[in-house]
Structures are given as structure tokens and as C-alpha cells.
Amino acid sequence: MRLQKYMAKCGVASRRKSEEIIQANRVKVNGHIVNELGVKINPKEDTVMVNNQIITLEEEKVYIVLNKPEGYVTTVSDQFDRPTVLDIVKNVDERIYPVGRLDYDTSGLLLLTNDGDLTYRLTHPKHEVNKTYIAKVRGTPNSNELDQFRNGLNIGDYITSKANIKILKKFKDSSLVEIEIHEGRNRQIRRMCDVINHPVISLKRIAMGKIKLENLQKGSWRYLTDNEINYLKNS
């Protein structure tokens, strides 16, 4: 790779400005000043310094959506040697991290990225990114219980914000409900359902904002599209 291109990719300056920096004797390759244009370097083997500071390539940003199965922890590593979501996402060179978390026994949509700014935006409460879940619960909530859920519940150490809930299907001893919240407290939905006396049997996240699982199979992942990335960055 040409030296000025490498400098530009490292975020030093534009290629044209990088050429000026080279000609000003401000660049060293493997400890030696380089002031001629057209020099090629190997980013993996050569050490490049600008103003006596080593420069490195800016890591390419990666954005992934995973349909997390139950039985995986949403961490990079686990002290109990349980499988983690990173055991599923193979052949990704960049060091990625989960955005927020899903419980060990919860499945569904999980974002992974190496974009720290976006992770902060999506997990900070003030940004209020809506998260949609499908839960199978014991029994069927009545209208009073649904209203309690929608207006906020005391789950022990916290009073939840207003939430959306609707019944999708009723069974003999259980029901399927769709729940939408913008918070992400530990086991929040399970605790909310416990408060209204309809414990969760199974729980799956199907969307974060406009990012949806759709036909992504459990245990599979894909890269976000440019439109999805732009939506998240501007939401």
C-alpha cells in the first residue's frame, strides 16, 4: 500500500495532505525518515510514525444482527465456561461486542458491533430505542392487568416506564403477548410479568426500533444493510 494511502486510512489526513506531510520530513518508516512520494509499505510488517507517533489503521466498523438461541450468555467470555454469543458469530476478523444483553434463557434479536459510539447511543436510556418482544406467559392477562403493565410497574427496585402490551393469541393455560419497552433493566420483562401474576414461559426479542429479525433463523446472523446502519446512527 502506498504510504500516503496508508496514512489517510489511519485518519492522519487526506492523501494530498499526507503527501505534504511526507515531503516535510515528518514521516518515518521502520525508524527512517521517508520524504519521497510513491513509497509502498506493508501495514502488517512495517512501523509508520508521523511526528514520532506510531499510526495504525482505523478498525473497520462492523454491524451484525444475530438471532440468539436460548442457552448462550451475552458476553465476550463467561467465568462458568457457558457458551457465549461470540461462539456463534464465526469468521469475523474484527473484535466485536454485544449491544446490551439478552438473558441466558431469552432468544431473539441481538446487535453486535465494534462501534463504541453507536453502542452508547443504543444502550443509554435517554435515547429510548424501542425493543419489541414476543412472550408466552402463563394464563391470560385481563384488562386491569394490561393497564397496570402499560402504566408502569414497581418491580422491586425500580418503577418501569410506560410500556405497550397486547394479546396475540390465547391458549388453554397460557397466552402469547407482544411487549414493547424502551428500557433494558435486568430481566425486566420477566419481572414485569411476574408482578401481574403471569410469569414468562418463553421470551423472544423480535425488533430493536426498525431493525427486525424477520426470517433470520435462530442461531444465524447477518451484516446490517447500509440503510439499517444509517437508521441506527440517526435514530
Rank of each mutant, 00 (worst) to 15 (best):
K162H: 14
S18H: 01
Y72M: 00
C193I: 03
N186P: 00
G11H: 02
N227C: 07
H198F: 01
A24R: 13
V89Y: 05
A13Q: 01
K126S: 15
N154L: 04
E19M: 06
G71H: 09
R191T: 06
P43D: 05
I55K: 03
N227Q: 15
E183P: 11
D93E: 15
R15P: 00
D147F: 10
K166F: 09
V12P: 02
H198C: 03
V92I: 15
R187C: 05
R82Q: 05
H182R: 11
T225A: 13
R82N: 01
G116I: 07
N67K: 11
L224A: 12
A163P: 01
N215V: 10
R205F: 10
E128T: 12
S14V: 05
V12K: 01
I201N: 09
I134A: 10
L213K: 14
Y6V: 09
F149R: 08
K61G: 08
M49G: 00
I155T: 11
T225L: 04
P43R: 01
R191E: 09
V39Q: 06
V12N: 05
R101W: 00
R16Q: 08
V129Y: 05
L146A: 08
S77R: 02
G108H: 07
K68V: 00
D173P: 05
N154F: 13
N186K: 13
E145Y: 06
L37V: 06
I88H: 04
H32T: 08
K136R: 15
G152N: 11
L109Y: 04
T56Y: 12
N164H: 14
T75L: 00
G116M: 00
L232V: 13
D105H: 13
A207R: 14
Y63H: 03
N67P: 07
I159G: 05
I179G: 10
R222Y: 07
T75G: 08
L122C: 00
N51F: 10
R185E: 09
L122R: 04
N186G: 00
E228W: 13
L111I: 01
D93M: 08
F171I: 06
N51Q: 08
E20S: 11
K212I: 13
Y97F: 15
A8P: 01
I41G: 00
N154A: 11
D93H: 06
K131L: 09
Q217A: 15
I159D: 08
T119K: 03
L203K: 08
Y97I: 09
E145I: 07
Y133H: 05
N186E: 01
G31Q: 03
S202A: 12
V177R: 08
I21W: 01
E58T: 14
L57C: 10
Y231K: 11
E180Q: 15
D226S: 14
G219L: 13
V89L: 05
V29F: 06
K172F: 10
T119Y: 03
K131F: 02
K40E: 15
I189N: 04
V29H: 00
D173C: 08
L111Y: 03
N230W: 09
V92P: 12
G100N: 01
G100W: 01
Q217S: 15
S202I: 03
I165D: 09
E214P: 04
R190H: 11
I54T: 09
M7C: 03
I96P: 03
L57V: 04
